[in-house]
Computed example of a mutant assay.
Amino acid sequence: MATRKKKDAAASAKVSKAAALRDKDVAGLQAEIKDLQKAHFGLRMQKATQQLSNTATLRITRRDIARAKTILAQKQQEAAK
């Protein structure tokens, strides 16, 4: 049962992140992507110097960047129509 609650919580967190990103405009999304990329770079440097204790954060930030880029592409495509 505990794992099911974790999965449900993770799924709802993704939905809320996507919903929050959809509320932003194009400039806001570009700024968000830039911030996420800087954070990901910092995490990669921590990993390289063996200062990163939780390596799962790399995957999380990479997926957040992809999510933001996808929504940005969707918004740009809608604007082009």
Rank of each mutant, 00 (worst) to 15 (best):
K17V: 10
H40V: 10
Q74L: 10
D8R: 13
A13R: 15
S53Q: 11
S53H: 07
L72R: 00
Q51W: 03
A68G: 03
A19I: 05
Q74E: 15
L29P: 00
G42W: 08
L29E: 01
G28L: 01
A79I: 08
H40Y: 14
G42V: 02
R44C: 05
A2P: 11
D8Y: 11
K7M: 14
M1L: 06
R59E: 10
D35W: 07
L21V: 03
K14C: 01
R63N: 10
D35G: 04
Q74D: 15
M45A: 08
D23E: 13
M1Q: 10
T55I: 07
A2H: 13
K6Y: 15
T55Y: 06
A20G: 09
L36C: 06
A11T: 09
T3L: 13
Q76E: 13
Q77M: 07
L36Y: 06
L21S: 01
A39Y: 03
S12H: 02
K7H: 15
Q46E: 04
Q51S: 05
A18K: 07
I71Q: 01
K7A: 15
Q74W: 02
R63D: 11
I71C: 00
Q76D: 01
A56C: 04
G28I: 04
K81W: 12
A18G: 09
Q37K: 15
R67K: 11
V26S: 02
F41S: 15
K17G: 08
R44V: 01
K7D: 10
L43K: 04
T3D: 13
K81D: 10
D23C: 10
N54S: 03
I71R: 00
R67H: 09
D25K: 11
Q77A: 14
A2R: 14
K14W: 14
S16H: 14
R67G: 13
M45R: 05
L21T: 02
Q50W: 07
K14F: 09
D23R: 14
L29G: 00
E78F: 09
K34V: 05
I65N: 01
Q50E: 04
K24E: 07
A27G: 12
Q76H: 03
A19P: 08
T55S: 06
